[in-house]
């Protein structure tokens, strides 16, 4: 009975993982395919790195990747700064007029349909064109910040709620002015949340296509937009190569972060045991 159930659980687990990762795995495998046709495996000449070489010689892709990277970085930084301020206001000043409305408005972009957000921003940028110039990298960044910020607020506010208020009071009691308290006590304590909010905002911006399509201009094509337009004309194998590189970067980042956090937790447990053993 027990054996049969564990067999069932194991097969469900395998199915789940296969469902999630087989498409990605096949994409990785096909990135080494020599054939120009995506669906045909050319066993005579494979595996090959030809598509990787071609990828780095494709200036259009590289340009789009650079633009996406720039937009995502600026967006993440801006979203985190605004998100921290908003989260602080919501969490630390609990009794101000309109707090409920403010809270609702900051998180609304998460649930608003992207098409609506995109369209409304497009209308706004058309009106604002004399002020901020033609649509391009700037407007994309601003648009991305509007929805990234909502996620940043949620992440940072959750962390801020767990920071013991008496730490901030203690700092103030010892002579630190409110801004100093924020800089030297609150900020270091919520730094992990700020880092995750930054990464989250970066990724949200990096793979956004719907809102980007509304607010981008003729000269600015982000990586998702480029890939999307290429796929419409038929998938070319260098896109597989590009995707494989991205998967590699993400995997390495996850493994490094995971190892670091595991080591840190182990160290904390060890330290706590030493302290308890010392007694007194």
């Amino acid at each position: 009975m027990h054996d049969r159930r564990s067999w069932f659980v194991l097969s469900m687990l395998c199915f789940g993982f296969a469902f999630l990762y087989v498409p990605i795995l096949s994409m990785v495998v096909y990135s080494f395919n020599a054939s120009r046709l995506v669906t045909v495996w050319d066993s005579a000449h494979s595996p090959t790195l030809a598509w990787y070489v071609e990828l780095f010689h494709n200036s259009e892709i590289m340009e789009a990747a650079r633009l996406s990277f720039r937009i995502a970085s600026v967006n993440a930084t801006g979203a985190v700064i605004l998100g921290t301020l908003a989260a602080f206001a919501l969490e630390r000043y609990r009794r101000f007029r309109g707090r409920g409305l403010f809270s609702l408005l900051t998180t609304a972009p998460m649930v608003l349909p992207e098409v609506i957000t995109g369209l409304s921003l497009l209308l706004l940028f058309v009106v604002l064109e004399p002020l901020i110039g033609a649509r391009g990298a700037t407007t994309i960044t601003i648009a991305h910040m509007t929805f990234s910020m909502a996620y940043a607020i949620v992440v940072i506010q959750a962390r801020l709620a767990t920071v013991d208020r008496s730490l901030e009071e203690a700092a103030m009691d010892l002579g630190a002015r409110p801004w100093k308290v924020f800089a030297v006590i609150t900020l270091p304590l919520i730094a992990p949340a700020i880092a995750s909010a930054w990464v989250l905002s970066f990724i949200l911006s990096w793979d956004d296509i719907v809102i980007t399509s509304f607010v981008s201009g003729p000269g600015s094509t982000t990586l998702p937009q480029y890939v999307f337009s290429k796929v419409r004309l038929g998938v070319s194998p260098d896109i597989n190569a590009l995707a494989t590189i991205l998967v590699l970067i993400v995997s390495v980042a996850v493994i490094v972060a995971g190892t670091y956090m595991m080591r840190r937790d182990q160290r904390r447990i060890r330290d706590a045991q030493v302290a308890l053993g010392a007694g007194g």
């Binding site: 904390r268 330290d271 706590a272 030493v274 302290a275 308890l276 010392a278 007694g279 007194g280």
Partner: peptide, 8 residues
């Protein structure tokens, strides 16, 4: 602080 006992 996390390396200290309660009394410390």
């Amino acid at each position: 602080p996390h390396q200290l006992s309660g009394g410390q």
